[in-house]
């Protein structure tokens, strides 16, 4: 990996973390455990369409690990990791069949997979099906939030330079 590439990935990771920390400062919109706007996912969606799956996975891994540290809530790491990687796997599969005008859909489905993954992890950790009852609310709210973060990413992919899918800018 070239230095230029490493730096670009690091900048994106930093951007994702800034959004993540910013979101922690916002009041909780819906008092349901696990619900978030997912602003950091704007970066993930952007990376899925502009970088290789491996590079995107690097960004997401770094963001999830550092995010758990910055939020001071390392016990939530397992849920956010489960969600983030389900979401990532789904979006990487989808980027092959979705055109640039449907990036928002990729994000909506990513949100759906994220919520499903984190709920599954919560059920496994708590050895109870109780967290699953939140799933419908989480999905309805999460997919709506995913629509807006997805649209943001879509505008970004369209406008951020004429770089090709492999992220060469300029």
């Amino acid at each position: 990996m070239s230095t230029r590439r490493t730096v670009t990935l690091a900048v994106l990771t930093g951007l994702a973390l800034i959004l993540f920390v910013l979101e922690l400062r916002l009041p909780n919109l819906l008092p349901v455990p696990g619900f978030k706007l997912g602003l950091a996912n704007i970066v993930t969606v952007y990376a899925v369409f502009r970088f290789s799956p491996k590079e995107t996975a690097l960004i997401v891994t770094a963001r999830v690990l550092l995010g758990a540290m910055f939020s001071g809530n390392p016990s939530a790491l397992i849920y956010s990791a489960a969600g983030a990687f389900c979401c990532l796997a789904g979006m990487i599969a989808l980027r092959k069949i979705l055109p640039a005008e449907r990036i928002w859909l990729c994000s909506v489905i990513g949100a759906m997979l994220h919520n499903t993954g984190q709920t599954a992890a919560a059920c496994a950790v708590m050895r109870s099906a109780a967290p699953a009852v939140y799933l419908p609310v989480l999905l309805a709210a999460g997919m709506t939030a995913g629509l807006f973060t997805g649209l943001t990413a879509q505008f970004l992919v369209k406008r951020a330079g004429a770089g090709n899918r492999n992220g060469r800018f300029g």
Partner: peptide, 25 residues
Amino acid sequence: CPDQTCVHMGKLHSDALPIICVPNR
């Protein structure tokens, strides 16, 4: 815990919506 979600959930009122504190299980 830092997120206080269970506190913000308020009073238990619905069968379908138990109060869950995920960090403390």
